[in-house]
């Protein structure tokens, strides 16, 4: 177990270094950092001095090591477009994205699991078929189009829900939350629904297929033969055993949710990291792009690591050769 954790930890560090290398390459070689920092009238000597001062004349290895050291201390550089430290920008935007992602994930879980259980237990019923049809449409409708339709119906035609922004936020010092005000909750409904839609269908289909598989196993037959009630069999035995892969996939999907928040945040003008990243791409604002990349990679790697370890804790049958294959179905 410890060997496994160490090995996965080492792999994670290697991945992070690779991502940092990409970030560093962007930072250093896409455009000229000095030209971005100074105005037209700066003389060549001043530029050379600045070059020296920034350490751009050191060897590449030294520069890379310095970059890694910098990002390890959350010193992400200065945005070209807004002229403020990137770390500050991200810290401002992080709570909005994380809140949206968490609410979306919870919604996907709390709605998706019961829908999956229902369709597995009553495959022939009309409602099950409706769920499956809806899930197919949900997968094929582009995320941004779902968001736009919601805005059109609930925002423009019915005028029930706000169509942009986070509503009123409460500042908790290091964290600003919209989940403590009524307008904050109203604002998060449509974005969270949009963002969670795909995960919901994924979870529903996963629960359904796992459950159908478990219901065919011998121990379910024995449980029924022992005369246990349907409820005890379905929920105590069957559902419990389907939840392991569900937890894994949801965990891994959390990373995707944060990444896909880029689209949802654009549709609803949600002031999160995704919107920041998109603006950075449009302005070729390399420091913001590189930092977002490193940060998202950190999320992904941390979640992957946690899920992998959790998987082995929960299910002792799994050994290392299957462990890496988990959750890579997509």
């Amino acid at each position: 177990m410890i060997a496994l954790v160490l090995r996965r930890l080492l792999q994670s560090v290697v991945v992070m270094l690779a991502v940092a290398l990409i970030g560093f390459t962007l930072f250093r070689y896409v455009g000229d950092p000095v030209a971005q920092m100074v105005g037209q009238e700066t003389s060549l000597e001043e530029r050379a001095a600045l070059r020296d001062e920034l350490g751009l004349n050191d060897s590449v290895v030294v520069q890379f090591a310095r970059y890694v050291g910098d990002i390890a201390q959350a010193r992400f550089g200065i945005s070209y477009a807004i002229d403020r430290p990137v770390a500050e920008l991200i810290a401002e935007r992080l709570p909005a994205t994380l809140e949206l992602s968490l609410v979306a994930a919870l919604y996907a879980l709390l709605v998706g699991i019961p829908m999956g259980v229902y369709t597995a237990l009553h495959p022939a019923r009309l409602l099950s078929k409706a769920f499956l049809a809806v899930s197919l449409v949900g997968i094929s409708l582009p995320t941004f189009f779902i968001g736009i339709l919601l805005i059109l119906v609930f925002g423009v035609w019915l005028g029930l829900l706000p169509t942009f922004g986070r509503g009123e936020v409460v500042d908790l010092g290091w964290w600003s939350t919209g989940l403590l005000t009524a307008s904050g909750w109203k604002s998060i409904l449509m974005p969270a629904f949009t963002l969670g839609m795909f995960q919901l269908t994924l979870i529903m289909r996963l629960v359904r297929s796992e459950m159908l598989e478990v219901l065919r196993t011998d121990y379910i037959k024995f449980a029924r033969a022992r005369g246990l009630s349907d409820r005890a069999v379905n929920f105590g035995h069957a559902l419990k055993n389907t939840l392991v892969p569900v937890i894994t996939v949801t965990g891994l999907q959390l990373g995707s949710i944060i990444a896909f928040a880029i689209i949802t945040e654009t549709v609803f003008q949600w002031p999160g990291m995704g919107l920041l990243f998109l603006q950075a791409i449009q302005f070729a604002d390399i420091p913001v792009m590189a930092s977002y990349l490193v940060l998202i990679a950190l999320f992904f790697v941390a979640i992957n690591l946690a899920v992998d370890i959790l998987y082995h804790v929960v299910d002792p049958r799994l050994r290392i050769d299957r462990g890496t294959g988990a959750g890579q179905g997509r």
Binding site: V15, A18, V19, L26, V30, G31, G255, S256, A259, F260, I262, I263, F277, L278, A280, I281, Q282, A284, I286, M289, L293, I296, A297, F300, N304, T324, Q328
Partner: peptide, 23 residues
């Protein structure tokens, strides 16, 4: 391939586009 597939395709595409925009 392992590293790339752990990131959603849209993110990778966005990033490539952003880099080419910078170049």
């Amino acid at each position: 391939a392992d590293v790339q597939i752990s990131f959603p395709a849209i993110l990778v595409a966005l990033l490539i586009d952003g880099v080419l925009r910078g170049i």
